[in-house]
Computed example of a mutant assay.
Amino acid sequence: MAKPSPDKERQMLGLFLLPGVYLRVLADTVKRLGHDDRRLYEGLSFAPDELQAADSRVFVTDAIIFADRAMAMAGKDGLSFLLARELRVTIHGTLGFAALTSPTVGGALDSVRRYLQLRAPFLSLVMRDTGEHMLVQLRSEFEVPGLYHFLAETVMATLVMLAEQLVDRDSASELGFTLENGKLPGVTARLSCPEPAYYPRFAAQLPVSFEYGAEAEMMVFPVKFMDIRMRLADADASEMARSQCEFELQKALKEQGDIVLAIRNMLQLTPGPLPSLDVMAERFCVSSRTLKRRLADRDTTYREIVESVLKNRAIQLLRYTNQSISEIAYELGYADLSNFSRAFRKWTGKSASEFREDGPDPAPELGP
Protein backbone atom coordinates (compact mmCIF):
# COMPACT_ATOMS: atom_id res chain seq x y z
CA MET A 1 0.00 0.00 0.00
CA ALA A 2 1.47 3.36 -0.99
CA LYS A 3 2.33 5.76 1.76
CA PRO A 4 -0.25 8.57 1.97
CA SER A 5 0.81 12.18 1.79
CA PRO A 6 1.82 13.95 5.05
CA ASP A 7 -1.41 15.98 4.96
CA LYS A 8 -3.46 12.81 4.54
CA GLU A 9 -1.60 11.05 7.37
CA ARG A 10 -2.15 14.09 9.55
CA GLN A 11 -5.86 14.16 8.81
CA MET A 12 -6.32 10.44 9.36
CA LEU A 13 -4.36 10.55 12.60
CA GLY A 14 -6.88 13.07 13.85
CA LEU A 15 -9.75 10.95 12.53
CA PHE A 16 -12.15 13.83 13.04
CA LEU A 17 -11.63 17.56 13.09
CA LEU A 18 -12.09 19.36 16.39
CA PRO A 19 -14.41 22.40 16.64
CA GLY A 20 -12.24 25.50 16.65
CA VAL A 21 -14.46 27.15 19.28
CA TYR A 22 -12.88 24.95 21.97
CA LEU A 23 -9.41 26.24 21.16
CA ARG A 24 -10.72 29.81 21.04
CA VAL A 25 -12.20 29.46 24.55
CA LEU A 26 -9.00 27.81 25.75
CA ALA A 27 -6.89 30.66 24.34
CA ASP A 28 -9.19 33.26 25.90
CA THR A 29 -8.89 31.53 29.29
CA VAL A 30 -5.10 31.42 29.04
CA LYS A 31 -5.07 35.13 28.14
CA ARG A 32 -7.31 36.07 31.09
CA LEU A 33 -4.81 34.36 33.36
CA GLY A 34 -2.19 36.85 32.16
CA HIS A 35 -0.31 34.69 29.65
CA ASP A 36 0.62 35.50 26.06
CA ASP A 37 -1.96 33.52 24.06
CA ARG A 38 -0.19 34.34 20.77
CA ARG A 39 2.43 31.73 21.59
CA LEU A 40 -0.25 29.02 21.37
CA TYR A 41 -0.55 29.53 17.59
CA GLU A 42 3.15 29.49 16.64
CA GLY A 43 3.84 27.16 13.73
CA LEU A 44 0.23 25.96 13.43
CA SER A 45 -1.92 26.24 10.32
CA PHE A 46 -4.57 28.55 11.76
CA ALA A 47 -4.74 32.02 13.29
CA PRO A 48 -6.94 33.41 16.10
CA ASP A 49 -9.41 35.04 13.73
CA GLU A 50 -9.99 31.71 11.95
CA LEU A 51 -11.36 30.21 15.19
CA GLN A 52 -14.11 32.81 15.41
CA ALA A 53 -16.29 31.17 12.74
CA ALA A 54 -18.97 28.82 14.07
CA ASP A 55 -17.95 26.11 11.61
CA SER A 56 -14.18 26.35 12.12
CA ARG A 57 -12.39 23.01 12.51
CA VAL A 58 -8.78 22.07 13.32
CA PHE A 59 -6.89 18.81 13.16
CA VAL A 60 -6.80 16.91 16.43
CA THR A 61 -3.02 16.69 16.10
CA ASP A 62 -2.80 20.50 16.02
CA ALA A 63 -5.24 20.76 18.91
CA ILE A 64 -3.02 18.50 21.03
CA ILE A 65 -0.02 20.76 20.39
CA PHE A 66 -2.17 23.80 21.21
CA ALA A 67 -3.41 22.27 24.49
CA ASP A 68 0.10 21.13 25.44
CA ARG A 69 1.28 24.73 25.17
CA ALA A 70 -1.70 26.01 27.15
CA MET A 71 -0.95 23.52 29.91
CA ALA A 72 2.71 24.51 30.01
CA MET A 73 1.67 28.15 30.45
CA ALA A 74 -1.33 27.92 32.77
CA GLY A 75 -1.84 24.35 33.94
CA LYS A 76 -0.72 25.17 37.47
CA ASP A 77 -3.32 27.96 37.63
CA GLY A 78 -6.17 25.44 37.57
CA LEU A 79 -6.73 25.83 33.83
CA SER A 80 -9.00 22.76 33.67
CA PHE A 81 -11.56 24.13 36.16
CA LEU A 82 -11.43 27.65 34.74
CA LEU A 83 -11.92 26.32 31.22
CA ALA A 84 -14.85 24.14 32.33
CA ARG A 85 -16.60 27.27 33.63
CA GLU A 86 -16.41 28.82 30.17
CA LEU A 87 -17.63 25.76 28.25
CA ARG A 88 -21.30 26.64 28.47
CA VAL A 89 -23.89 24.33 26.98
CA THR A 90 -24.45 26.45 23.85
CA ILE A 91 -20.77 26.12 22.88
CA HIS A 92 -21.30 22.41 22.24
CA GLY A 93 -23.78 23.02 19.42
CA THR A 94 -26.28 20.28 18.62
CA LEU A 95 -24.74 17.96 21.22
CA GLY A 96 -25.31 20.58 23.91
CA PHE A 97 -28.89 21.10 22.73
CA ALA A 98 -29.56 17.35 22.74
CA ALA A 99 -28.35 17.12 26.34
CA LEU A 100 -30.09 20.32 27.41
CA THR A 101 -33.51 19.13 26.19
CA SER A 102 -33.18 15.48 27.23
CA PRO A 103 -36.05 14.24 29.42
CA THR A 104 -33.71 13.03 32.18
CA VAL A 105 -30.12 13.20 33.40
CA GLY A 106 -29.65 9.65 32.13
CA GLY A 107 -30.80 10.67 28.67
CA ALA A 108 -28.46 13.67 28.67
CA LEU A 109 -25.47 11.49 29.61
CA ASP A 110 -26.41 8.98 26.94
CA SER A 111 -26.37 11.76 24.32
CA VAL A 112 -22.91 12.79 25.51
CA ARG A 113 -21.73 9.16 25.45
CA ARG A 114 -22.99 8.61 21.93
CA TYR A 115 -21.76 11.84 20.35
CA LEU A 116 -18.76 12.93 22.45
CA GLN A 117 -16.40 12.01 19.63
CA LEU A 118 -17.91 14.80 17.51
CA ARG A 119 -16.47 17.27 20.02
CA ALA A 120 -13.53 15.34 21.55
CA PRO A 121 -12.62 12.50 19.17
CA PHE A 122 -9.86 11.12 21.37
CA LEU A 123 -12.19 10.57 24.35
CA SER A 124 -15.06 8.19 24.99
CA LEU A 125 -17.53 7.54 27.81
CA VAL A 126 -18.51 4.09 29.03
CA MET A 127 -21.58 3.84 31.29
CA ARG A 128 -22.08 0.89 33.64
CA ASP A 129 -25.02 0.28 35.97
CA THR A 130 -23.96 -1.58 39.13
CA GLY A 131 -27.50 -1.60 40.52
CA GLU A 132 -26.66 1.01 43.13
CA HIS A 133 -24.53 3.41 41.11
CA MET A 134 -24.10 4.49 37.53
CA LEU A 135 -20.39 4.54 36.74
CA VAL A 136 -19.46 6.88 33.90
CA GLN A 137 -15.90 6.07 32.95
CA LEU A 138 -13.81 8.36 30.77
CA ARG A 139 -11.32 6.72 28.43
CA SER A 140 -8.71 8.05 26.06
CA GLU A 141 -8.74 6.40 22.63
CA PHE A 142 -5.23 7.63 21.81
CA GLU A 143 -2.06 8.27 23.75
CA VAL A 144 -2.03 11.93 24.77
CA PRO A 145 0.95 12.07 27.15
CA GLY A 146 0.80 14.96 29.59
CA LEU A 147 -2.73 15.91 28.57
CA TYR A 148 -4.93 13.02 29.65
CA HIS A 149 -5.50 14.17 33.23
CA PHE A 150 -6.08 17.75 32.10
CA LEU A 151 -8.67 16.54 29.59
CA ALA A 152 -10.32 14.21 32.10
CA GLU A 153 -10.51 16.91 34.75
CA THR A 154 -11.90 19.44 32.25
CA VAL A 155 -14.55 17.06 30.84
CA MET A 156 -15.69 15.93 34.28
CA ALA A 157 -15.83 19.46 35.65
CA THR A 158 -17.77 20.60 32.56
CA LEU A 159 -20.31 17.79 32.89
CA VAL A 160 -21.00 18.29 36.59
CA MET A 161 -21.18 22.08 36.26
CA LEU A 162 -23.72 21.74 33.46
CA ALA A 163 -25.67 19.14 35.44
CA GLU A 164 -25.86 21.45 38.45
CA GLN A 165 -27.21 24.25 36.24
CA LEU A 166 -29.65 22.18 34.18
CA VAL A 167 -31.33 19.61 36.46
CA ASP A 168 -34.83 20.34 37.70
CA ARG A 169 -34.64 21.14 41.43
CA ASP A 170 -38.15 19.93 42.22
CA SER A 171 -37.61 16.64 40.42
CA ALA A 172 -34.31 16.16 42.23
CA SER A 173 -35.96 16.77 45.61
CA GLU A 174 -38.77 14.32 44.80
CA LEU A 175 -36.16 11.62 44.19
CA GLY A 176 -34.28 12.42 47.40
CA PHE A 177 -31.55 14.63 45.95
CA THR A 178 -32.09 18.10 47.35
CA LEU A 179 -29.65 20.46 45.67
CA GLU A 180 -28.30 22.98 48.16
CA ASN A 181 -25.51 25.51 47.80
CA GLY A 182 -24.79 24.40 44.25
CA LYS A 183 -23.95 20.81 45.23
CA LEU A 184 -25.01 17.54 43.58
CA PRO A 185 -25.58 15.11 46.47
CA GLY A 186 -24.17 11.63 46.16
CA VAL A 187 -22.10 12.40 43.04
CA THR A 188 -18.30 12.17 42.93
CA ALA A 189 -15.61 12.58 40.28
CA ARG A 190 -12.56 10.34 40.49
CA LEU A 191 -9.18 10.78 38.82
CA SER A 192 -6.09 8.58 38.95
CA CYS A 193 -3.55 11.41 39.21
CA PRO A 194 -2.34 12.88 42.53
CA GLU A 195 -4.32 15.82 43.86
CA PRO A 196 -3.00 18.98 42.17
CA ALA A 197 -1.89 21.93 44.31
CA TYR A 198 -4.60 24.16 42.82
CA TYR A 199 -7.53 21.91 43.72
CA PRO A 200 -8.19 23.33 47.23
CA ARG A 201 -8.76 26.77 45.65
CA PHE A 202 -11.63 25.39 43.57
CA ALA A 203 -13.07 22.66 45.82
CA ALA A 204 -15.75 24.83 47.45
CA GLN A 205 -16.89 26.18 44.06
CA LEU A 206 -17.39 22.77 42.44
CA PRO A 207 -20.76 20.99 42.54
CA VAL A 208 -19.13 17.66 43.48
CA SER A 209 -16.04 16.44 45.26
CA PHE A 210 -13.08 15.43 43.10
CA GLU A 211 -11.27 12.41 44.53
CA TYR A 212 -7.69 11.87 43.36
CA GLY A 213 -5.48 8.79 43.36
CA ALA A 214 -8.34 6.58 42.13
CA GLU A 215 -7.91 3.50 39.94
CA ALA A 216 -9.57 5.07 36.89
CA GLU A 217 -11.18 8.27 35.62
CA MET A 218 -14.88 8.08 36.31
CA MET A 219 -17.92 9.88 37.65
CA VAL A 220 -20.12 8.04 40.12
CA PHE A 221 -23.85 8.80 40.26
CA PRO A 222 -26.54 7.16 42.40
CA VAL A 223 -28.66 5.16 39.94
CA LYS A 224 -31.83 7.09 40.86
CA PHE A 225 -30.03 10.32 39.96
CA MET A 226 -30.38 9.26 36.32
CA ASP A 227 -34.18 9.72 36.60
CA ILE A 228 -34.03 13.40 37.56
CA ARG A 229 -35.77 15.56 34.94
CA MET A 230 -33.85 18.19 33.05
CA ARG A 231 -35.04 21.76 33.56
CA LEU A 232 -35.65 22.34 29.84
CA ALA A 233 -36.78 18.82 29.00
CA ASP A 234 -38.41 18.55 25.58
CA ALA A 235 -38.47 15.04 24.14
CA ASP A 236 -39.26 16.16 20.58
CA ALA A 237 -36.53 18.81 20.53
CA SER A 238 -34.02 16.38 22.03
CA GLU A 239 -34.83 13.75 19.40
CA MET A 240 -34.40 16.32 16.63
CA ALA A 241 -31.03 17.35 18.08
CA ARG A 242 -29.91 13.72 18.38
CA SER A 243 -30.92 13.15 14.75
CA GLN A 244 -28.77 16.09 13.73
CA CYS A 245 -25.86 14.74 15.80
CA GLU A 246 -26.31 11.38 14.08
CA PHE A 247 -26.19 13.08 10.69
CA GLU A 248 -23.01 14.95 11.65
CA LEU A 249 -21.45 11.74 12.93
CA GLN A 250 -22.16 9.74 9.79
CA LYS A 251 -20.94 12.65 7.64
CA ALA A 252 -17.70 12.81 9.63
CA LEU A 253 -17.22 9.07 9.23
CA LYS A 254 -17.63 9.31 5.47
CA GLU A 255 -15.22 12.23 5.30
CA GLN A 256 -12.51 10.20 7.00
CA GLY A 257 -11.81 8.72 3.60
CA ASP A 258 -9.86 5.47 3.76
CA ILE A 259 -11.46 3.32 6.48
CA VAL A 260 -8.51 0.92 6.45
CA LEU A 261 -6.03 3.73 7.07
CA ALA A 262 -8.28 5.21 9.75
CA ILE A 263 -8.46 1.92 11.66
CA ARG A 264 -4.77 1.24 11.22
CA ASN A 265 -3.79 4.66 12.57
CA MET A 266 -6.14 4.25 15.51
CA LEU A 267 -4.66 0.85 16.34
CA GLN A 268 -1.12 2.21 16.08
CA LEU A 269 -1.96 4.73 18.79
CA THR A 270 -3.59 2.12 21.04
CA PRO A 271 -1.48 0.18 23.56
CA GLY A 272 -1.95 -3.60 23.62
CA PRO A 273 -4.05 -5.62 23.81
CA LEU A 274 -5.75 -4.19 20.73
CA PRO A 275 -9.54 -3.80 20.73
CA SER A 276 -11.90 -6.39 19.29
CA LEU A 277 -13.90 -5.91 16.11
CA ASP A 278 -17.02 -5.17 18.17
CA VAL A 279 -15.21 -2.48 20.18
CA MET A 280 -13.78 -0.91 17.02
CA ALA A 281 -17.19 -0.97 15.35
CA GLU A 282 -18.67 0.85 18.34
CA ARG A 283 -15.88 3.43 18.09
CA PHE A 284 -16.92 4.06 14.46
CA CYS A 285 -20.59 4.06 15.47
CA VAL A 286 -21.53 1.21 13.14
CA SER A 287 -22.48 -2.42 13.68
CA SER A 288 -19.75 -5.05 13.50
CA ARG A 289 -21.48 -6.44 10.41
CA THR A 290 -21.32 -3.04 8.68
CA LEU A 291 -17.64 -2.63 9.55
CA LYS A 292 -16.89 -6.11 8.19
CA ARG A 293 -18.68 -5.22 4.97
CA ARG A 294 -16.83 -1.91 4.58
CA LEU A 295 -13.50 -3.68 5.06
CA ALA A 296 -14.50 -6.46 2.65
CA ASP A 297 -15.14 -3.74 0.06
CA ARG A 298 -11.44 -2.88 0.49
CA ASP A 299 -10.42 -6.55 0.16
CA THR A 300 -9.27 -6.90 3.74
CA THR A 301 -10.50 -7.90 7.19
CA TYR A 302 -10.16 -6.45 10.66
CA ARG A 303 -7.97 -9.40 11.67
CA GLU A 304 -5.57 -8.68 8.80
CA ILE A 305 -5.24 -5.04 9.86
CA VAL A 306 -4.65 -6.02 13.49
CA GLU A 307 -1.98 -8.56 12.48
CA SER A 308 -0.23 -5.99 10.30
CA VAL A 309 -0.08 -3.55 13.22
CA LEU A 310 1.10 -6.27 15.61
CA LYS A 311 3.77 -7.42 13.16
CA ASN A 312 5.11 -3.89 12.69
CA ARG A 313 5.06 -3.24 16.42
CA ALA A 314 6.84 -6.55 17.19
CA ILE A 315 9.56 -5.80 14.62
CA GLN A 316 10.11 -2.33 16.05
CA LEU A 317 10.33 -3.64 19.63
CA LEU A 318 12.79 -6.38 18.62
CA ARG A 319 14.81 -3.94 16.55
CA TYR A 320 15.02 -0.97 18.90
CA THR A 321 14.57 -2.25 22.47
CA ASN A 322 16.27 -4.67 24.82
CA GLN A 323 12.98 -6.09 26.07
CA SER A 324 12.85 -9.86 26.34
CA ILE A 325 10.71 -11.74 23.85
CA SER A 326 8.26 -12.68 26.61
CA GLU A 327 7.97 -9.01 27.61
CA ILE A 328 7.29 -8.03 24.00
CA ALA A 329 4.65 -10.75 23.67
CA TYR A 330 2.93 -9.52 26.83
CA GLU A 331 3.08 -5.88 25.67
CA LEU A 332 1.42 -6.87 22.40
CA GLY A 333 -1.43 -8.55 24.27
CA TYR A 334 -0.36 -12.20 24.02
CA ALA A 335 -0.99 -14.04 27.27
CA ASP A 336 0.79 -17.13 25.89
CA LEU A 337 4.34 -16.79 24.56
CA SER A 338 3.86 -19.78 22.24
CA ASN A 339 0.96 -18.01 20.48
CA PHE A 340 3.16 -14.98 19.85
CA SER A 341 6.00 -17.19 18.60
CA ARG A 342 3.72 -18.93 16.10
CA ALA A 343 2.31 -15.60 14.91
CA PHE A 344 5.76 -14.04 14.47
CA ARG A 345 7.04 -17.01 12.47
CA LYS A 346 3.96 -16.78 10.23
CA TRP A 347 4.59 -13.06 9.66
CA THR A 348 8.33 -13.20 8.96
CA GLY A 349 9.35 -16.83 8.39
CA LYS A 350 11.67 -16.56 11.39
CA SER A 351 11.35 -16.99 15.12
CA ALA A 352 11.62 -13.81 17.20
CA SER A 353 15.01 -14.90 18.55
CA GLU A 354 16.30 -15.67 15.03
CA PHE A 355 15.10 -12.29 13.83
CA ARG A 356 16.92 -10.55 16.67
CA GLU A 357 20.13 -12.57 16.14
CA ASP A 358 20.22 -12.35 12.34
CA GLY A 359 19.40 -8.67 12.02
CA PRO A 360 16.18 -6.97 11.05
CA ASP A 361 14.04 -7.66 8.04
CA PRO A 362 13.37 -4.84 5.58
CA ALA A 363 11.24 -1.95 6.84
CA PRO A 364 7.82 -2.97 8.19
CA GLU A 365 4.83 -2.75 5.91
CA LEU A 366 2.94 0.52 5.87
CA GLY A 367 -0.42 -1.18 6.03
CA PRO A 368 -2.47 -4.13 4.90
Rank of each mutant, 00 (worst) to 15 (best):
K3S: 10
P4F: 02
R10T: 09
Q11H: 14
Q11V: 07
M12Q: 15
F16K: 10
L23Q: 13
V25Y: 04
L33P: 00
G34C: 00
G43T: 05
F46C: 03
A53Y: 09
D68W: 10
A70E: 08
M71Q: 15
A98M: 10
A99C: 13
T101V: 01
T104K: 09
V105I: 09
S111V: 04
R113Q: 15
F122T: 11
L125V: 09
L125Q: 05
L125D: 05
L135R: 10
V144M: 13
V144N: 10
Y148C: 00
M156R: 02
T158P: 01
A163C: 12
D170T: 08
E174P: 00
G176A: 03
G176K: 05
E180R: 15
G186W: 00
T188E: 09
R190Y: 10
A197Q: 11
A203I: 00
S209M: 11
F221N: 01
K224N: 13
D227I: 01
M230R: 08
R231Q: 11
D236G: 01
A241T: 04
L249T: 08
Q250P: 02
Q250N: 13
L253N: 13
I259Y: 06
L261D: 12
R264S: 04
G272F: 02
P275N: 04
A281Q: 14
A281T: 11
R283F: 06
S288D: 11
A296S: 15
T300C: 11
N312R: 12
R313D: 03
R313W: 04
Q316M: 10
Y320G: 00
S324R: 14
I325S: 04
I325Y: 02
I328A: 02
G333R: 01
A335D: 12
D336F: 08
L337H: 15
S341T: 15
W347I: 01
T348C: 07
K350N: 08
A352E: 07
S353I: 10
E357W: 03
D361K: 01
P362R: 04
P368D: 05
